[in-house]
């Protein structure tokens, strides 16, 4: 199966690495075949360090303290949850910049169970100063935002999903900290991140068939967050539904609601991974269905907000 985002990552390392002799890539025994073009073109700058993620993170910070640009890559639970203290103390507190890139966030490794799931990573890193959080679900988002961040002196986390959302954005529209209005509407705002943009757009089609104009917003960056775009949208629609492959704490829903706090009469609903471990196996799609991450459910939740007009005239 194609792994579009991982392939884009590997290709970008090659392209950027050839031009920038300060780029180093360190991996925890994943993606080493995909990264061979970089390894071959940039000898001495690719390290498949081993299966010792906290050490890889501290080591990356030490490298970056010399002004080198490090990219540290492995599976999300091992890089973010297991190595959180190393991220906090060795990168963030010391004001050292670098890039963390994961695959396997949320339930992308659907069959592998809890040890290989990670749905609190955004929350964990949002709480650390000097971090940026990027969640690109199309190639151009990654290439643009990596180029803009990898040497900006901050720690940038790229959460690479297995699935893409299928929308082709213009490179010029991709800006760190900026969301995108993918579809205009006036009745309800659907806010999405990651591959769930696809779900949001399909839900908007269903809502349109019922005479409800849904505005679809997409946020490739979770920190910094484009609160202005969100607030401006819900100031018009007064209704907000967020969808994200993340726990309810500290993800898109939290930050969106904070951005919309001044909108009077706001009605809101949230689709997220509930406060329970996901114990099923199967496929990514089966997990999505079990969690209600479907166009049908999202449209129904949005339509319910639109139907509930109680108190609107007050």
């Amino acid at each position: 199966m194609a792994d579009v985002m991982r392939d884009t990552f590997a290709r970008t390392m090659h392209e950027v690495g050839v031009a920038d002799p300060d780029l180093l890539v360190l991996v925890g025994d994943i993606s080493h075949f995909a990264l061979q073009p970089f390894a071959q073109a940039c000898p001495g700058r690719f390290y498949n360090v081993g299966i010792l993620e906290p050490t890889i993170v501290s080591m990356s910070a030490g490298l970056a303290s010399l002004g080198l640009h490090t990219v540290t890559h492995t599976i999300a639970p091992f890089l973010i949850e297991r190595s959180l203290e190393q991220i906090k103390l060795d990168f963030c507190y010391q004001g050292i910049g670098g890039t963390l890139i994961t695959v396997g966030s949320a339930f992308d490794y659907a069959t592998l169970g809890c040890s290989h799931h990670c749905y609190d990573d955004i929350s964990l890193l949002r709480g650390l100063p000097n971090t940026e959080i990027v969640y690109p679900a199309s190639p151009v988002e990654f290439t643009r935002l990596f180029a803009d961040t990898y040497r900006n002196g901050r720690l940038t986390y790229f959460r690479l999903p297995k699935e893409t959302h299928g929308v082709d954005f213009a490179e010029a529209d991709i800006v760190l900290g900026k969301g995108l209005r993918v579809r205009p509407g006036s009745d309800v705002t659907l806010a999405a991140c990651g591959p769930q943009l696809r779900t949001a757009l399909a839900a908007a089609d269903r809502l349109a068939a019922r005479g409800i104009a849904a505005e679809v917003l997409y946020f490739p960056t979770l920190k910094p967050f484009d609160g202005e775009l969100l607030a401006a949208s819900v100031a018009r629609t007064r209704r907000l539904v967020c969808i994200e492959e993340h726990v309810e704490f500290g993800g898109l829903g939290d930050v969106a609601l904070r951005a919309a706090r001044h909108v009077a009469g706001l009605k809101s609903d949230f689709l997220f991974i509930p406060d329970a471990f996901q114990r099923g196996y199967g496929t990514y799609e089966e997990h999505c269905r079990a969690l209600g991450f479907t166009p049908e459910n999202l449209a129904a939740r949005a339509a319910a907000l639109c139907a509930d007009t109680a108190g609107e005239s007050a």
Binding site: T55, S58, M59, S60, G62, A64, S65, E85, L89, D90
Partner: peptide, 20 residues
């Protein structure tokens, strides 16, 4: 050269400096 306190960070950080 490093902010330390939590044990077990200094050597891997140093390892990065040495490699760099």
């Amino acid at each position: 050269e490093a902010s330390t306190g939590s044990l077990g960070h200094g050597l891997p950080f140093s390892l990065g400096i040495a490699l760099g």
